[in-house]
Design a protein around this nucleic acid. Structure first.
Lengths: 340, 340
DNA sequence: CTGAAAGCGCTTACAG
DNA sequence: CTGAAAGCGCTTACAG
């Protein structure tokens, strides 16, 4: 093991006390320039690296944050490139601040004991619901959190959300503008307070404004995955005469849907228009390219880290705690004028 | 802060020594059943969680591993769902062993000081080259590593590789079998010893076997990303009369390529056949679905953790250190008989 | 400007 | 079966 080198060794070799070495390392206290450079030299030569455990034991902080993402399947992170883009943003934001990122999948029964165990400095939590047990446990932790896509009602929580309602509205308006009258919705679980809930609300508002009737038979609730979208296509076969457009609340489900439609002989956009949500990297490149509600996921991750670190370090406290990110519509090839 | 509860508090309340509490927690030493249950009860009631820092300080291990992935762009993890699938596998494997996963992007100048700093137990390293400085530094760390997709020549290293040569061969054979004679290659950097190198070797072998001539003008080296693939399509416009098929060494580049071809009026597979590599989740669902060399990325991640933990814990040492995963061909719609 | 000492929370021989 | 004590590597008042 190389880790044998400790502050003691440095002190001994430099002929100073460990307190002095510590001061040099942290640039604290008053140390003569001579001593500083002597100690620094030895630190270099010995490849000394201070132990995070020892520091953490004193400071009770760890320079470690976690990205918490709920499991979809049992014990397995969700199969959605969305998360990778998010995590990429978090990692890139964190590394500028010498903070490392732990990745953590949780289910409803998670007790978060590792958070205390590891003295995590903070958490970036994606998509939790306010009324859940997991959320309560999270709060009980009493550590800095930034909630993403969670639409918490309490304004005291730091959170970043998309304007999901507007997104739902925009996508639906777009389809209505193209002459579509019977517009289906492909959504993940429609729990009140979740992103899908708000997207659906926006959808309803757009319909209402145009005097188009909504109906439960137009709502397809399914796992927000490629496979989920694919499966819905089968069910859609029978609706075909009625529905001329589908608004999918995630790009991955749109991808599965389009392929599923293709496999039952329906082509997008000729037979059915499809709008997605997220604008993951791939959406612009598929054939047909996907009309979708755009969000910059990578920078969302970066903003989240910044917000979390501000909170941890007590900087930037004047900023407001809740950020609502605007959405926009990227019109591409998967949606066209209603031919029916 | 809740973390105030320490082994001392438990000891005081239970009227035992901290040593006994420690023994109860770790199931070590001989403690009377009565004491055990008394202490355990208090631990429960107080929501006591042992401090990882303190433990780590003694044990010099951390129950923390890192997945190390090289940056493509500056300071930014690669934009490839491949990594997400891999990380999903690692996370799911690790959580069964109460190990947490740090995500870490590196570039050539990384000094890995955080590895010693945090006393990481081990590393899963994706795609490094033997002759690089980063690799040397990694070895100097002297901690357990499992190398993925790195094709290290030294058999003493634990590593998991695909049979990339066979993959390159298989995909090319497939195209040759379809009557293609001029087969281009879309690859990431062709560095000796890298995955692309071996895939290319396999490609060359297949050509050789069939007496087809290879040529540098058929090799397109480009960043292995959607965008990279897209850009190559432009350049390909002029080659059009000659090349009838392209073998892309990653699915993401194949995706970009297919779209790029589409945008210059060439359709896959009618005008050009395309084969990918990886079989990321999306490939089966795109239109046309992508013929590709299949690997199970998620389970690759799981195998990697298992191998790493075996190494860390000194278990399963009889197993061989180097695993070569076989590949297979998934024939789908993007490749058809040569019409030219 | 520098050092001795206490203490963070835990584990591990070692006594008893 | 249980406890007192040392020590892991560091930081932080506090003396000097």
């Amino acid at each position: 093991m190389h880790n044998k080198v400790s502050i003691k060794d440095i002190a001994r070799i430099a002929n100073v006390s460990i307190a002095t070495v510590s001061n040099v390392i942290n640039g604290k206290g008053r140390v003569s320039p001579k001593t500083v450079s002597k100690v620094n030299k030895i630190i270099q030569d010995m490849h000394f690296v201070p132990s995070a455990s020892a520091r953490s034991l004193k400071d009770m902080n760890s320079h470690l944050i976690a990205v918490v993402v709920p499991f979809l399947e049992k014990g397995m992170l969700q199969d959605n490139p969305f998360y990778w883009e998010l995590v990429r943003g978090v990692e890139s934001g964190a590394r500028h601040h010498e903070v490392q990122v732990i990745l953590l999948g949780i289910d409803e029964n998670e007790d978060f004991s590792f958070v205390k165990q590891r003295h995590l400095d903070g958490l970036i939590v994606v998509g939790v619901f306010e009324h859940t047990l997991a959320f309560q446990k999270l709060l009980d932790l009493g550590i800095p959190c930034v909630f993403l896509d969670s639409h918490l009602s309490n304004p005291d929580f730091h959170q970043i959300d998309l304007d999901d309602e507007a997104g739902g509205y925009l996508g639906t308006r777009h389809l209505i503008g193209l002459g579509h009258k019977v517009i289906g919705v492909l959504t993940g679980k429609l729990e009140e307070g979740g992103v899908n809930y708000y997207r659906h609300q926006g959808y309803l508002r757009a319909l209402r404004e145009s005097g188009i009737e909504a109906g439960p038979e137009l709502v397809f609730e399914e796992a927000p995955s490629i496979r989920g979208g694919y499966q819905v296509a089968q069910r859609l076969g029978s609706y075909k005469p009625k529905i001329s457009a589908i608004f999918a609340f995630s790009d991955v489900s749109a991808i599965g849907l389009i392929r599923g439609l293709h496999d039952i002989g329906l082509s997008v956009p000729a037979d059915l228009s499809v709008v997605g949500f997220d604008d993951i990297n791939y959406s612009a490149y598929m054939i047909p390219s996907l009309t979708t509600i755009r969000q910059d996921i990578v920078s969302k991750g970066q903003i989240a880290v910044k917000m979390l670190l501000d909170q941890i370090n007590g900087t930037g406290l004047t900023d407001k705690k809740s950020v609502k990110i605007p959405v926009s519509l990227s019109v591409r090839q998967s949606s066209i004028v209603n031919m029916i």
